[in-house]
């Protein structure tokens, strides 16, 4: 049999000189030096620390275009953002910059990505692919229904309301802590109800599975489960998505970070972008640790800082720099 070897179409190390290739876009002149580094360094793990107004969107947009120009198949690039509009906007801009190929890049939020993957693999998780999604209000209503069914509403002592119950369940999922820990730290006055909380939680889980329902947290939980427990599916996905980029990494939660680790796979072409000084979503379970610890998770990661601001006047920047400076002391 004749062996026919395909040549590599993508660069496979960080130092591939750009000059050898012909690019449509003049990256060097359209980006500042830090942005340029972030855009053209493609392989291996990267952490981009992007200060406020430093052209983060621009950088991600150019990086998408750059990868596509290098010959990376757009479908094998995954861009996860905080809102889906952000992903759409970046891909739209990349398409204007380069061409329509950029529209084919897989982009969205963690939840929308999870939704898409879970529909394809619902069966192995015991769900039907037509599962519907409960928003927070719906989820609280289910908890309330079970609370009544299980006769917790007739307790003599005040029993937590649906909002509190659901908040405890959700917090436990998003911060990877046990219900006992959550009660101890956040709701000490309900610690006596630990057993009831646990009973209600299993009833809630059972209800959702019986009625083919997932709440927002489930989307992430089941995606992680799928990746952890189904090696074949994980392998397929990591082979499919060869370049993974995550925006607003400072506002991801623990499960999202674990999903990122699982998706980074063997290729480890993972770039996370964010600003530790702008982490403000801990009330939803986000943890600043994800971005702070990224260099420990990937010891060979390249850290690039974007510090040139294109938004504000210098007096405003002096003032905001001072707000941060006083935190360090």
């Amino acid at each position: 049999m004749k062996k026919y070897t395909l040549r590599k179409t993508t660069t496979d190390n960080r130092s591939e000189p750009e000059s050898r290739r012909h690019f449509q876009i003049d990256y060097k002149n359209q980006l500042n030096p830090a942005q340029y580094d972030a855009v053209t360094s493609t392989n291996g793990p990267h952490l981009i620390i992007a200060g406020a107004g430093t052209g983060k969107t621009r950088t991600i947009t150019y990086r998408v275009a750059y990868l596509v120009e290098l010959g990376v198949r757009p479908e094998s690039i995954l861009l996860l953002t905080f809102t889906r509009r952000a992903a759409q906007e970046m891909l739209r801009r990349a398409s204007i910059l380069l061409d329509a190929r950029c529209e084919k890049v897989a982009g969205g939020t963690f939840h929308s990505f999870a939704n898409q993957i879970l529909r394809q693999h619902a069966k192995v998780l015991g769900f039907d692919s037509s599962f519907t999604i409960l928003d927070q209000g719906d989820a609280e209503d289910v908890v309330n229904l079970l609370r009544t069914q299980m006769k917790f509403d007739t307790r003599e002592k005040r029993f937590p309301r649906k909002k509190t119950l659901f908040d405890v369940f959700s917090r436990s999922v998003n911060t990877s802590r046990s219900i006992a820990e959550i009660l101890e730290e956040d709701y000490p006055h309900y610690e006596d109800y630990l057993e009831e909380f646990s009973l209600l939680q299993s009833a809630y889980v059972g209800y959702k599975s019986k009625h083919n329902l997932m709440d927002y947290d489930d989307l992430l939980l089941f995606l992680r489960k799928l990746l952890q427990e189904h090696e074949g599916i994980r392998k397929k996905l990591t082979e499919k998505y060869k370049y993974v980029m995550v925006d607003e990494y400072q506002d991801t939660n623990r499960i999202q970070a674990e999903i990122v680790l699982l998706l980074a796979g063997r290729h480890k072409n993972i770039m996370v972008v964010g600003d530790d000084a702008q982490s403000i979503y801990s009330f939803r379970g986000a943890t600043i640790r994800n971005i702070l610890d990224f260099p420990e998770e990937f010891p060979d990661c390249l850290v690039i800082k974007l510090e040139e601001n294109y938004r504000s006047t210098q007096p405003i920047l002096d003032f905001t720099n001072e707000i941060l400076r006083r935190a360090r002391e």
Binding site: G51, A277, K305, R311, L324
Partner: peptide, 9 residues
């Protein structure tokens, strides 16, 4: 603030 930065314009 592990990643110290000083924004400028």
């Amino acid at each position: 603030h592990k990643f110290h930065k000083e924004l400028f314009t």
